[in-house]
Design a protein around this nucleic acid. Structure first.
Lengths: 141, 141
DNA sequence: TAAATTACTTTCAAAATAGAAGTAAAAATG
DNA sequence: CATTTTTACTTCTATTTTGAAAGTAATTTA
Protein backbone atom coordinates (compact mmCIF):
# COMPACT_ATOMS: atom_id res chain seq x y z
CA UNK A 1 0.00 0.00 0.00
CA UNK A 2 2.62 2.47 -1.02
CA UNK A 3 1.43 5.95 -1.87
CA UNK A 4 4.01 7.18 -4.30
CA UNK A 5 3.23 8.76 -7.60
CA UNK A 6 5.00 8.59 -10.92
CA UNK A 7 4.42 12.18 -11.93
CA UNK A 8 2.41 15.35 -11.44
CA UNK A 9 -0.15 14.33 -14.04
CA UNK A 10 -3.67 13.72 -12.71
CA UNK A 11 -4.20 10.90 -15.20
CA UNK A 12 -1.03 9.08 -14.22
CA UNK A 13 -1.75 9.63 -10.51
CA UNK A 14 -5.27 8.29 -10.87
CA UNK A 15 -3.90 5.25 -12.68
CA UNK A 16 -1.35 4.84 -9.90
CA UNK A 17 -4.27 3.71 -7.74
CA UNK A 18 -7.02 2.65 -10.17
CA UNK A 19 -4.90 1.42 -13.08
CA UNK A 20 -5.51 -2.30 -12.92
CA UNK A 21 -8.01 -4.82 -14.16
CA UNK A 22 -10.12 -4.96 -11.00
CA UNK A 23 -10.63 -1.62 -9.26
CA UNK A 24 -13.15 -0.18 -11.71
CA UNK A 25 -14.95 -3.50 -11.91
CA UNK A 26 -15.47 -3.30 -8.15
CA UNK A 27 -16.67 0.29 -8.41
CA UNK A 28 -19.07 -0.88 -11.12
CA UNK A 29 -20.34 -3.67 -8.85
CA UNK A 30 -21.03 -1.13 -6.14
CA UNK A 31 -22.38 1.78 -8.15
CA UNK A 32 -24.34 -0.07 -10.80
CA UNK A 33 -25.16 -3.38 -9.18
CA UNK A 34 -25.47 -2.16 -5.61
CA UNK A 35 -23.15 -4.83 -4.24
CA UNK A 36 -22.01 -4.26 -0.69
CA UNK A 37 -20.34 -7.35 0.75
CA UNK A 38 -17.15 -9.34 0.23
CA UNK A 39 -19.32 -12.30 -0.71
CA UNK A 40 -21.19 -10.34 -3.36
CA UNK A 41 -18.01 -8.97 -4.96
CA UNK A 42 -16.52 -12.43 -4.82
CA UNK A 43 -19.48 -13.81 -6.75
CA UNK A 44 -19.05 -11.49 -9.75
CA UNK A 45 -19.01 -13.19 -13.13
CA UNK A 46 -15.43 -12.03 -13.64
CA UNK A 47 -14.29 -14.29 -10.82
CA UNK A 48 -11.93 -12.21 -8.74
CA UNK A 49 -9.59 -14.15 -6.46
CA UNK A 50 -10.30 -13.52 -2.81
CA UNK A 51 -6.75 -12.42 -2.12
CA UNK A 52 -6.87 -9.78 -4.82
CA UNK A 53 -10.32 -8.71 -3.68
CA UNK A 54 -9.16 -8.23 -0.11
CA UNK A 55 -6.15 -6.20 -1.20
CA UNK A 56 -8.20 -4.02 -3.57
CA UNK A 57 -10.83 -3.27 -0.95
CA UNK A 58 -8.07 -2.28 1.43
CA UNK A 59 -6.52 0.00 -1.17
CA UNK A 60 -9.82 1.64 -2.12
CA UNK A 61 -10.55 2.19 1.54
CA UNK A 62 -7.09 3.63 2.18
CA UNK A 63 -7.67 6.19 -0.55
CA UNK A 64 -11.12 7.06 0.74
CA UNK A 65 -13.13 5.75 -2.20
CA UNK A 66 -15.06 3.32 -0.03
CA UNK A 67 -15.92 2.83 3.62
CA UNK A 68 -16.19 -0.39 5.55
CA UNK A 69 -18.66 -0.80 8.37
CA UNK A 70 -20.84 -3.30 10.15
CA UNK A 71 -24.55 -2.97 10.64
CA UNK A 72 -25.77 -3.10 14.26
CA UNK A 73 -27.63 -6.37 13.78
CA UNK A 74 -24.83 -8.30 12.07
CA UNK A 75 -21.37 -8.66 13.51
CA UNK A 76 -20.08 -10.85 10.69
CA UNK A 77 -20.87 -9.09 7.46
CA UNK A 78 -18.87 -6.07 6.44
CA UNK A 79 -20.71 -3.49 4.40
CA UNK A 80 -18.62 -1.67 1.82
CA UNK A 81 -20.05 1.59 0.50
CA UNK A 82 -18.76 4.13 -1.97
CA UNK A 83 -17.95 7.57 -0.61
CA UNK A 84 -18.72 10.70 -2.65
CA UNK A 85 -15.22 10.34 -4.01
CA UNK A 86 -16.10 6.89 -5.28
CA UNK A 87 -19.54 7.93 -6.50
CA UNK A 88 -17.81 10.65 -8.48
CA UNK A 89 -16.26 7.99 -10.67
CA UNK A 90 -19.65 7.51 -12.32
CA UNK A 91 -18.67 9.63 -15.37
CA UNK A 92 -15.54 7.54 -15.87
CA UNK A 93 -17.55 4.32 -15.57
CA UNK A 94 -20.09 5.61 -18.09
CA UNK A 95 -17.47 6.75 -20.62
CA UNK A 96 -15.61 3.46 -20.36
CA UNK A 97 -18.89 1.61 -20.83
CA UNK A 98 -19.75 3.65 -23.91
CA UNK A 99 -16.32 3.12 -25.42
CA UNK A 100 -16.38 -0.59 -24.70
CA UNK A 101 -19.90 -0.90 -26.05
CA UNK A 102 -18.83 0.79 -29.28
CA UNK A 103 -15.45 -0.84 -29.88
CA UNK A 104 -15.06 -4.09 -27.97
CA UNK A 105 -18.02 -5.97 -29.43
CA UNK A 106 -15.97 -6.90 -32.47
CA UNK A 107 -13.70 -8.91 -30.17
CA UNK A 108 -16.35 -9.97 -27.66
CA UNK A 109 -19.50 -10.35 -29.77
CA UNK A 110 -21.92 -11.20 -26.97
CA UNK A 111 -21.21 -8.04 -24.99
CA UNK A 112 -24.30 -6.74 -23.26
CA UNK A 113 -25.74 -3.65 -24.89
CA UNK A 114 -26.12 -0.24 -23.30
CA UNK A 115 -28.08 1.68 -25.93
CA UNK A 116 -29.76 4.17 -23.66
CA UNK A 117 -26.46 5.43 -22.28
CA UNK A 118 -25.58 7.23 -25.47
CA UNK A 119 -28.77 9.22 -25.68
CA UNK A 120 -28.84 10.89 -22.27
CA UNK A 121 -25.49 10.38 -20.67
CA UNK A 122 -25.72 13.24 -18.18
CA UNK A 123 -29.07 12.25 -16.77
CA UNK A 124 -28.05 8.61 -16.50
CA UNK A 125 -24.93 9.55 -14.57
CA UNK A 126 -27.09 11.64 -12.26
CA UNK A 127 -29.64 8.91 -11.73
CA UNK A 128 -26.90 6.38 -11.04
CA UNK A 129 -25.39 8.66 -8.43
CA UNK A 130 -28.68 9.67 -6.85
CA UNK A 131 -29.90 6.09 -6.63
CA UNK A 132 -26.65 5.10 -4.97
CA UNK A 133 -26.87 7.90 -2.42
CA UNK A 134 -30.43 6.85 -1.63
CA UNK A 135 -29.30 3.29 -1.11
CA UNK A 136 -26.46 4.38 1.17
CA UNK A 137 -28.87 6.51 3.19
CA UNK A 138 -31.26 3.61 3.61
CA UNK A 139 -28.49 1.21 4.60
CA UNK A 140 -26.91 3.39 7.26
CA UNK A 141 -30.22 4.80 8.49
CA UNK B 1 -1.23 -10.90 -26.40
CA UNK B 2 -4.13 -13.12 -25.53
CA UNK B 3 -7.56 -11.93 -26.56
CA UNK B 4 -9.79 -13.54 -24.00
CA UNK B 5 -12.34 -11.71 -21.98
CA UNK B 6 -13.48 -12.17 -18.44
CA UNK B 7 -17.12 -11.41 -19.02
CA UNK B 8 -19.74 -9.86 -21.27
CA UNK B 9 -19.44 -6.50 -19.53
CA UNK B 10 -18.10 -3.65 -21.67
CA UNK B 11 -16.27 -2.16 -18.70
CA UNK B 12 -14.53 -5.40 -17.81
CA UNK B 13 -13.70 -6.06 -21.48
CA UNK B 14 -12.25 -2.59 -21.90
CA UNK B 15 -10.16 -3.10 -18.78
CA UNK B 16 -9.04 -6.46 -20.17
CA UNK B 17 -6.98 -4.45 -22.65
CA UNK B 18 -6.57 -0.98 -21.11
CA UNK B 19 -6.62 -1.91 -17.43
CA UNK B 20 -3.03 -1.24 -16.46
CA UNK B 21 -0.87 1.65 -15.36
CA UNK B 22 0.53 2.53 -18.78
CA UNK B 23 -1.95 2.25 -21.64
CA UNK B 24 -3.93 5.41 -20.88
CA UNK B 25 -0.72 7.30 -20.17
CA UNK B 26 0.44 6.45 -23.69
CA UNK B 27 -2.90 7.51 -25.14
CA UNK B 28 -2.52 10.77 -23.22
CA UNK B 29 0.98 11.26 -24.63
CA UNK B 30 -0.40 10.85 -28.13
CA UNK B 31 -3.69 12.69 -27.88
CA UNK B 32 -2.71 15.54 -25.59
CA UNK B 33 1.01 15.87 -26.10
CA UNK B 34 1.15 14.83 -29.75
CA UNK B 35 3.90 12.31 -29.20
CA UNK B 36 4.48 9.96 -32.10
CA UNK B 37 7.73 8.02 -31.68
CA UNK B 38 9.12 5.32 -29.43
CA UNK B 39 11.74 7.78 -28.31
CA UNK B 40 9.16 10.39 -27.34
CA UNK B 41 7.06 7.93 -25.34
CA UNK B 42 10.20 6.63 -23.74
CA UNK B 43 11.08 10.15 -22.58
CA UNK B 44 7.84 10.69 -20.63
CA UNK B 45 8.28 11.93 -17.08
CA UNK B 46 6.69 8.71 -15.81
CA UNK B 47 9.67 6.72 -17.07
CA UNK B 48 8.23 3.70 -18.80
CA UNK B 49 10.64 0.80 -19.29
CA UNK B 50 11.39 0.18 -22.95
CA UNK B 51 10.28 -3.45 -22.73
CA UNK B 52 6.88 -2.50 -21.35
CA UNK B 53 6.58 0.28 -23.89
CA UNK B 54 7.25 -2.08 -26.78
CA UNK B 55 4.71 -4.60 -25.50
CA UNK B 56 2.04 -1.94 -24.91
CA UNK B 57 2.48 -0.43 -28.37
CA UNK B 58 2.12 -3.90 -29.85
CA UNK B 59 -1.04 -4.52 -27.85
CA UNK B 60 -2.61 -1.17 -28.74
CA UNK B 61 -1.80 -1.81 -32.38
CA UNK B 62 -3.22 -5.33 -32.24
CA UNK B 63 -6.51 -3.92 -30.96
CA UNK B 64 -6.58 -1.19 -33.58
CA UNK B 65 -6.18 1.78 -31.25
CA UNK B 66 -2.99 2.92 -32.94
CA UNK B 67 -1.20 2.45 -36.24
CA UNK B 68 2.50 2.15 -36.89
CA UNK B 69 4.08 3.49 -40.06
CA UNK B 70 7.23 5.00 -41.47
CA UNK B 71 7.41 8.29 -43.30
CA UNK B 72 8.88 8.18 -46.82
CA UNK B 73 11.91 10.27 -45.89
CA UNK B 74 12.88 8.35 -42.74
CA UNK B 75 13.44 4.61 -42.67
CA UNK B 76 14.42 4.50 -39.04
CA UNK B 77 11.71 6.26 -37.10
CA UNK B 78 8.38 4.61 -36.59
CA UNK B 79 5.40 6.92 -36.35
CA UNK B 80 2.64 5.80 -34.03
CA UNK B 81 -0.74 7.47 -34.52
CA UNK B 82 -4.08 7.04 -32.83
CA UNK B 83 -6.90 5.66 -34.94
CA UNK B 84 -10.46 6.96 -34.54
CA UNK B 85 -10.91 4.19 -32.02
CA UNK B 86 -8.06 5.61 -29.99
CA UNK B 87 -9.13 9.21 -30.49
CA UNK B 88 -12.51 8.17 -29.15
CA UNK B 89 -10.92 7.61 -25.76
CA UNK B 90 -10.74 11.38 -25.32
CA UNK B 91 -13.85 11.46 -23.09
CA UNK B 92 -12.35 8.81 -20.83
CA UNK B 93 -9.07 10.71 -20.65
CA UNK B 94 -10.90 13.92 -19.78
CA UNK B 95 -13.09 12.33 -17.10
CA UNK B 96 -10.09 10.63 -15.51
CA UNK B 97 -8.22 13.95 -15.58
CA UNK B 98 -11.12 15.74 -13.91
CA UNK B 99 -11.46 13.10 -11.23
CA UNK B 100 -7.73 13.06 -10.57
CA UNK B 101 -7.59 16.83 -10.50
CA UNK B 102 -10.38 16.90 -7.92
CA UNK B 103 -9.37 14.04 -5.64
CA UNK B 104 -5.71 13.12 -6.05
CA UNK B 105 -4.20 16.48 -5.13
CA UNK B 106 -4.56 15.66 -1.45
CA UNK B 107 -2.08 12.83 -1.95
CA UNK B 108 0.02 14.45 -4.69
CA UNK B 109 -0.08 18.16 -3.79
CA UNK B 110 1.89 19.44 -6.74
CA UNK B 111 -0.44 17.97 -9.35
CA UNK B 112 -0.78 20.19 -12.36
CA UNK B 113 -4.10 21.98 -12.55
CA UNK B 114 -6.71 21.64 -15.26
CA UNK B 115 -9.23 24.31 -14.31
CA UNK B 116 -10.64 25.00 -17.73
CA UNK B 117 -11.62 21.38 -18.27
CA UNK B 118 -14.49 21.59 -15.84
CA UNK B 119 -16.14 24.55 -17.47
CA UNK B 120 -16.51 23.36 -21.06
CA UNK B 121 -15.77 19.69 -21.10
CA UNK B 122 -17.56 18.90 -24.35
CA UNK B 123 -15.84 21.56 -26.40
CA UNK B 124 -12.45 20.68 -24.99
CA UNK B 125 -12.94 17.03 -25.91
CA UNK B 126 -13.90 18.14 -29.40
CA UNK B 127 -10.95 20.45 -29.78
CA UNK B 128 -8.59 17.75 -28.55
CA UNK B 129 -9.94 15.31 -31.10
CA UNK B 130 -10.06 17.79 -33.96
CA UNK B 131 -6.53 19.00 -33.31
CA UNK B 132 -5.31 15.43 -33.28
CA UNK B 133 -7.04 14.61 -36.56
CA UNK B 134 -5.46 17.71 -38.09
CA UNK B 135 -2.05 16.62 -36.92
CA UNK B 136 -2.55 13.11 -38.31
CA UNK B 137 -3.61 14.56 -41.64
CA UNK B 138 -0.56 16.77 -41.82
CA UNK B 139 1.78 13.93 -40.86
CA UNK B 140 0.52 11.44 -43.40
CA UNK B 141 -0.09 14.04 -46.09
C1' DT C 1 -24.67 -28.02 19.56
C1' DA C 2 -23.30 -28.85 14.97
C1' DA C 3 -23.15 -27.22 10.44
C1' DA C 4 -22.84 -23.53 7.43
C1' DT C 5 -21.54 -18.91 6.22
C1' DT C 6 -18.71 -14.83 5.91
C1' DA C 7 -14.55 -12.62 5.54
C1' DC C 8 -10.79 -13.06 5.19
C1' DT C 9 -5.27 -14.98 5.22
C1' DT C 10 -1.86 -18.02 3.58
C1' DT C 11 0.63 -20.53 0.25
C1' DC C 12 2.70 -21.38 -3.98
C1' DA C 13 3.10 -21.26 -8.99
C1' DA C 14 2.73 -18.33 -12.96
C1' DA C 15 2.68 -13.97 -15.13
C1' DA C 16 3.73 -9.10 -15.41
C1' DT C 17 6.81 -5.31 -14.41
C1' DA C 18 11.13 -2.73 -13.74
C1' DG C 19 15.75 -1.75 -14.69
C1' DA C 20 19.88 -2.49 -17.08
C1' DA C 21 22.36 -3.84 -20.84
C1' DG C 22 22.83 -5.25 -25.56
C1' DT C 23 21.91 -5.18 -30.72
C1' DA C 24 21.01 -3.91 -35.55
C1' DA C 25 19.85 -0.68 -38.90
C1' DA C 26 19.73 3.98 -40.30
C1' DA C 27 21.14 8.67 -40.04
C1' DA C 28 24.12 12.33 -38.94
C1' DT C 29 28.85 13.96 -38.50
C1' DG C 30 33.63 14.86 -39.64
C1' DC D 1 33.43 7.48 -46.86
C1' DA D 2 34.24 6.03 -42.16
C1' DT D 3 32.76 6.77 -37.56
C1' DT D 4 29.71 8.11 -34.16
C1' DT D 5 25.16 8.71 -32.77
C1' DT D 6 20.41 7.79 -32.85
C1' DT D 7 16.30 5.01 -32.96
C1' DA D 8 13.81 1.18 -31.95
C1' DC D 9 13.83 -2.21 -30.23
C1' DT D 10 15.19 -7.23 -27.64
C1' DT D 11 17.09 -9.80 -23.95
C1' DC D 12 18.16 -10.72 -19.31
C1' DT D 13 17.41 -11.07 -14.50
C1' DA D 14 15.29 -9.62 -10.18
C1' DT D 15 11.21 -8.18 -8.02
C1' DT D 16 6.38 -7.61 -7.70
C1' DT D 17 1.78 -8.82 -8.73
C1' DT D 18 -1.68 -12.04 -9.87
C1' DG D 19 -4.35 -16.27 -9.74
C1' DA D 20 -5.97 -20.49 -7.84
C1' DA D 21 -6.62 -23.27 -4.04
C1' DA D 22 -6.79 -24.29 0.57
C1' DG D 23 -7.08 -22.97 5.35
C1' DT D 24 -8.86 -20.33 9.48
C1' DA D 25 -11.60 -17.82 12.90
C1' DA D 26 -15.67 -15.64 14.23
C1' DT D 27 -20.54 -15.55 13.68
C1' DT D 28 -24.91 -17.14 12.39
C1' DT D 29 -28.23 -20.55 11.17
C1' DA D 30 -30.36 -24.99 11.56
Amino acid sequence: MKKEFRSLCPIASTLDILGDKWSLVLIRDMLVRKKKTFKAFSASEEGIATGILASRLKLLESFGLITKRKLPDNKKENIYLLTEKGIDLAPVIVEVTLWGDKYMRVYNPKLKAYENLKTDKASIINTLQENYRQMVASVIA
